[in-house]
Design a protein around this nucleic acid. Structure first.
Length: 591
RNA sequence: CGGAGUGUGGCGCAGCUUGGUAGCGCAUCUGGUUUGGGACCAGAGGGUCGCAGGUUCGAAUCCUGUCACUCCGACCA
């Protein structure tokens, strides 16, 4: 097919829109792919919608290839199934809710586990029917506190969500692997670099879960990769190994030290380094020699409030995201002045293991960072104003209630798998695969009869790809200073032909002739046939729009050539007119 | 939800301090010249200045409230 730029519904912008910060957002608006229609909601213009459809097509082809079947649910859903699973309340403010004229509650689907579960329950009741894999490509609604980055985080966005239904864990593992492999093929075809990282299952419930992240500085997810082995995980999911026990037989007895005016770890360390009787002979004291005890409140789902103390090396902070992921479904709240006042064993600023622990004065559960080895000696609070204690040995002088791995992860931390160094990166989540297990099937009563005629609860997986987000991610990954650049697989057109130079019948004829040739070969062609537009404008627009193959029909026509440009390679080659068509057809078909 | 900033034709901005009825660039339309890297000349259309209230003879401008957007943080399969 051919689309003429003179009639294409588009207007490219010379200036960046003021409200767009990230490159993909700026370029998609400037090049006329999308327009903002509502906070967190975007309209697809013809160019953008073609890319969107191409991404969706790739996803469909790969989902169909593994035997998944496409269905489509309404976006407006009844409240009841979500009440049964608890997500009507668990989703909180992020759920768009509405009522009909009779004041009956509905919601706009944020994800469809409940509906798919009920659909399978509706139709199937035998183990012979399993496994079954269903998917849809549909708009999802989430009332995000802060939509951002255009298509990257919207409140209405397109997602491919699929769900697997199996009789047992082995089946679920096969379904999970099939989806995981399909996702690898999908992102490879889309040309998106990705990392597969271990993840927390979070509000979705279930056990195993991995995220597909497109590594990118503007990404909102932080993950670690091992520099040596293939370990890779979301920072929330990183598990540090418990440190090996240390021989503490040479550590002197614990000693309480007067440490006035040491409100911070740094001032405490400075004091130890300044006092001759406390100095170390071989090195300086550092924050890593101190044990910092952080107290927080946990709000349990039943409303109960529980104080929790966490001991971490003084050179590390407690990472709230990691903490919340570990204590979920409980939520973390501040332990403020009133709570300190209520527990007289706690001396703010000087809290130490002496009072922490369920069997000690404060009665507060005390968890240690796994880096705090058995037998290691620490400087820490002495539970008395202006006093710290040194040479306090874990296991000899104090005992914690257990370990809790919630300290911040840093560059060069040790890989839990091979003990090499980790690096920290940021990424955009473009896919997520979950083993949900029986959670939803149990809640909604999805059972099938097994070989023995006994009822079995079905076990489920759920698998998502953000379709609109993938469009933005590709733009983010591929663009250059001049504009967008689309891989052929998703490009709105295969070839962008520019008629340049003076209006000239032979130039126009050469361009039109190439259009016919490419069109009859089945290629999708964009022809810049606009009159009275200077060549510079057309070149800029072509680069902005980002079709990978650009052909310029201009001054070379007189000598029998067209200029063939490669948007990715940045090359421009004068090519004999008769060769241009066959060359492009071969290139596009060989994609 | 906390902090900061911004709302003026389709897009980017000026005007606001010191109140007098809206301007520039891009885009659009007409005519002409131009045509290989965001052309030029002449002319034209398009905005009751986010919204509501107030002060004033008079408000884009001052006051109050409110809404929206952007950024940072919190939150978020």
């Amino acid at each position: 097919m051919v689309q003429r730029l003179s009639t294409l519904f588009v207007r490219t912008l010379r200036d960046n829109p003021a409200d767009a910060e990230v490159p993909s957002h700026r370029l998609l608006v400037r090049a006329g792919y999308i327009r903002r229609a509502a906070p967190g909601g975007y309209t697809w213009l013809p160019l953008g919608y073609r890319v969107f459809q191409n991404v969706a097509r790739v996803i469909r082809e790969e989902m169909d290839a593994i035997g998944a079947q496409e269905v489509n649910f309404p976006a407006m859903l009844p409240k009841e199934p979500y009440e049964v699973t608890g997500r009507w309340t668990d989703y909180g403010d992020n759920l768009f809710r509405l009522q009909d004229r009779r004041k009956v509650d509905f919601l706009l689907g944020p994800t469809h586990e409940e509906m798919f579960t009920l659909l399978v329950k509706d139709l199937y009741s035998s183990y012979k029917d399993l496994p079954v894999w269903l998917y849809q490509i549909q708009n999802k609604f989430r009332d995000e506190a802060r939509p951002r980055g255009g298509l990257l985080r919207g409140r209405e966005f397109s997602m491919k969500d699929s769900y697997s239904f199996d009789l047992d864990q082995e089946g679920l593992q096969r379904s999970y692997d099939a989806h995981r492999n399909a996702y690898i093929r999908i992102f490879e075809r889309l040309g998106l670099p990705f990392a597969i990282v271990s993840a927390m299952s979070g509000a979705m419930g279930g056990s195993a879960s991995e995220e597909f992240l497109f590594p990118c500085d503007i990404g909102e997810d932080t993950f670690v990769q091992c520099t040596a082995c293939n370990y890779s995980a979301n920072t929330e999911a990183v598990r540090v190994g418990v440190a090996d026990a240390i021989d503490a037989s040479s550590v002197p007895a614990a000693k309480v030290v007067d440490t006035p005016d040491t409100p911070t770890i740094q001032t405490l360390v400075d004091l130890f380094n300044a006092r001759e009787d406390l100095q170390l002979s071989s090195r300086q004291w550092t924050a890593a020699d101190t044990l910092k005890n952080v107290v927080v409140n946990l709000r349990h789902p039943d409303g109960r409030l529980e104080a929790l103390a966490i001991g971490v090396p003084g050179d590390r902070e407690v990472d709230l995201k990691r903490l919340e992921a570990q204590v979920s479904p409980a939520e973390v709240e501040a332990f403020d002045e009133t709570h300190f006042a209520a527990n007289t064993a706690l001396v703010k600023g000087y809290i130490g293991p002496g009072v922490l622990g369920t069997n000690n004065a404060s009665g507060i559960r005390y968890m240690l960072d796994p880096r705090v080895a058995m037998g290691s000696a620490w400087i820490t609070g002495a539970d008395s104003r202006g006093k710290h204690v040194m040479n306090l040995v874990n296991g000899r002088d104090f005992t914690a209630d257990g370990t809790l791995d919630v300290a911040e992860i840093r560059d060069d931390d040790t890989c839990p798998s091979c003990r090499s160094a980790l690096t920290i990166k940021r990424g955009i989540e473009i896919g997520h695969v979950f083993q949900l297990g029986p959670k939803y099937a149990e809640a909604l009563g999805l059972h099938v009869l097994d070989k023995n005629g006994k009822q079995q609860t079905v076990t489920m997986g759920s698998y998502g790809i953000g379709v609109s987000r993938a469009v933005a991610a590709i733009a983010e990954a591929m663009h250059d200073d001049n504009g967008l650049r689309w891989p052929l697989e998703v490009s709105p057109f295969d070839v962008h032909i520019v008629i340049a130079g003076k209006d000239d019948a032979t130039i126009t004829a050469a361009a039109e002739s190439l259009v016919s040739e490419l069109e009859s070969a089945g290629l999708k062609v964009l022809l810049d046939d606009r009159q009275g537009i200077s060549p510079g404008v057309k070149f800029k627009d072509a680069e902005l729009i980002g079709v990978p193959n650009i052909v310029v029909a201009g001054r070379g026509v007189a000598s029998g050539t067209l200029e063939v440009r490669d948007r990715f390679a940045g090359t421009a080659v004068e090519t004999p007119i008769s060769q241009v068509g066959p060359q492009l057809v071969a290139q596009v078909r060989g994609k």
